[in-house]
Structure formats: C-alpha cells, structure tokens
Amino acid sequence: MGYISLLVMIPLAALLTNAFKGGLGAFWRAAISTESVDALKLTLVCSFLAAAFNAVAGTATAFVLVRDKFPGQGILNTIIDLPFALPTVVAGITFYALYGPHSPFHVNITGSWIGITVAIMFVTLPFSVRSVQPVLESLSLDAEAAAATLGASSFRIFRTVTLPAILPALLTGTGLAFARALGEYGSVVFISNNLPYHSEVASSYVYSLVSSGQVASAASVAVVLLCLALLVLIASNVIGRRLSRRHG
C-alpha cells in the first residue's frame, strides 16, 4: 500500500495541486491556450484515426490468426507483440528514417498528421488484435454454420453473428489503444517534428513546457490529457460491458 501511494497516489496529488496552484483561472488559461488546444486536437484526431483503423485491421488480423492456417502463422502471431517489446524510441527513429527526408522510398510524412498516425498505428496494433483473438477462439462455429445453412452470405454472417460477439472485447481493446495513443511520446516525437500549432502532440507540448520551466502550465495540460485518457477508458469499458450484457 505504501508502495502504491508513494508511487502513484502522492505524485498524482502533487500533479493536481500544481495544476490548480494559480487557481481555476490559471488552470483554465493554460489548458485552453491556442498551442495547448491545437496539440490536444491533433492528438485526439490522430489517436482516434489510428485506433479506429486498427479496430478494423486488428479484427482482420485476429481473424486470420484464428481461422486461417498457413505456414509462418506462428511468426505472424509472435510479431504482433513487437510494439510491446520494442522500445518506442527505436520505433520512433526508425519511422523517421523510413518515412522522413532521407526515406529509401522517397516519401516524407514527417511533420504531418499522417506520420503521427502511422506511428500510433504501430504502437496500438497489438491492443486490438489481442482483445479480439481470445473471443474469436472461444466462439463456437455452430452459430456461423447455422447462419450459413439459412443461406446467409459470409459478410452477412460476419455482421449479424460474429461481429456482435466480438464487439464488446473489440471496443474495450480499441478504448485501451486510444487511451494509450493519447499519451504516446517516444514513437511519435521524431516523426512529428514538433512544430507548435501544427504537428505537436499533447505529450510533446507538456514536455516542452516542462523543459522550459513552466511546470504549473505543464501540470494543467497534463490534467486535461489524463482526464481525456481516463474518460476514454471508462467509456469504452462501460459501453463494452453493456453490449456484452445485451448479447449474453
């Protein structure tokens, strides 16, 4: 208990007191400064795009892992966890080298929302795959077979039988990915170029405030970012639970 309070609770309390040290007004001014709002907006949009895209791609990947059989599947299954194992800074510099000014493919997506989104897609893919995969594995094929005998097309079967079953887990996984994406730093910071008002994500902005000594403002923006992440987590959990109750 002491371990947790020393580590988590007391520092969090320190964050809150620092954010509101100058009163509500100061907190609010820091939180809604143009640079802060632009950074938060960019973070939300890129995180949402990446999480949403991976919800689809992750489901497809889980499908291939569970239902398909082909040589090398084990390697595919293993490499899905790469973003958990590979340090974000390694991913960050690699993306910069791959898709930056010296790109071997001659594409430069640095300093744009595209680059940020790609980096976040990298980081969040396993969340979607690993949330859907176990549900698909435990899903009996009987219901799908029954639907097929009724003449339903594969897409229709997926939409009416499979999707409702995996949706709660998918939502929770996507929510987790979204929340994680909101705070992502290491993999994003290199490819984004950190141009204020333009390609600076929220965590980057907090860092720039910290390194320039504006700790109270940093705390204010951090509180907003933290609240957004918690909101996403809670919302996806609540919706996921409600959906799973409806579908038994």
């Binding site: 520092p11 969090l12 320190a14 964050l15 620092n18 929340a179 994680r180 909101l182 705070g183 992502e184 730093y185 290491g186 929220a202 965590s203 980057s204 907090v206 860092y207 910290v210 700790v215 940093a218 705390a219 951090a222 970012l225 933290l226 992440a229 918690l230 987590l233």
Partner: peptide
C-alpha cells in the same frame, strides 16, 4: 493510462 511524459512530470512535482 498515463502518458510517460506525465509520469515524468508528476514524479518531478
């Protein structure tokens, strides 16, 4: 759910 940057910040605070 906390950004690593925020982790750094709150430990500093």
């Amino acid at each position: 759910a906390i950004s690593p940057i925020i982790v750094g910040l709150i430990l500093e605070l």
